[in-house]
Amino acid sequence: MRLNVRRPLDSPLICGALGVLVLLAAEEAAGRLGLFSTLQFPLASTVLVNAAELIVDPDFLMDIVATVLAWALGLLLTVVVAVPLGLLLGSVPPVERALRPLIEFMRPIPSVAIIPLASFIFSERLDMKIAMILYASTWPILINTMYGLREVDPVAKETLRTFGFSPLQVLWRVSLPSTAPFIATGIRLAATIALILAISTELLAGGSEGIGTFIILAGSSPDAVTLTIAATFWAGVLGVLANGAFVRAERRLFRWNAARAGATL
């Protein structure tokens, strides 16, 4: 066994923190030395102070709650719709063949292009966010579920069939458990997309609350850039937390299966 001598630079935590600090310090130093105008782009310290103030501001917290609520509801609805649909398409080939051209055409429609259309149709902003999330996040779950079903061990399926299990039982006992890791990956990708859609809808269609709405309103205040960056910072933190939670859950649930589906997003 190799002796594991831990040097400080082997730790991802220390290195990562150093990397962040170096970047922030370089930006701060460049700004203070006058390499760029601090009016055009604020100093790192200004942004950090602003971000710290924002997170204790009850109005901004309400905006975060509004965005997260739409995100969670939308993602939940997407899972409820897309997983069964993916199972249906993946296990009944005629349905898949018939729907394929439609899916191939609908999938490349950029989700954001539908926001102007949806802003006519939906009067309630929360409904609209959920609908946009449903449209855009369905695809990764659907595709991953179908892909996962294709990878199910045929011998296991045949074995159960030989023992007289019905197709539904085979789906429940073999196909679903072995597809689960792929579905989980699809849901994780969908979660990222859902957050993007929630904030985009707020940005483009307006409304009364949400991180996107906050950013739009901040645009007309005197220190617009600083406020925008501070709000965007929290949006990024939200994204990191959500992705981290899903990655951890996946690792816990599917320790027995190292399968990684699809491309990295």
């Binding site: 630079l9 730790s11 991802p12 290195c15 990562g16 923190a17 150093l18 990397g19 962040v20 170096v22 970047l23 055009q40 954001v112 990222t192 957050l195 993007i196 904030i199 985009s200 940005l203 483009l204 991180i211 996107g212 950013i215 739009i216 901040a218 645009g219 617009a224 850039v225 925008t228 960056i229 709000a231 965007t232 949006a235 990024g236 933190v237 939200l238 994204g239 990191v240 959500a242 992705n243």
Partner: peptide, 24 residues
């Protein structure tokens, strides 16, 4: 190891939220 957190963060930023920043 040095840039991983930065990349994770950059990836998690919803791109449309950056639009007002880039416009400014």
């Amino acid at each position: 190891r040095f840039v991983d957190p930065l990349i994770q963060f950059g990836r998690a930023l919803p791109p449309p939220a950056l639009l007002p920043l880039f416009m400014a």
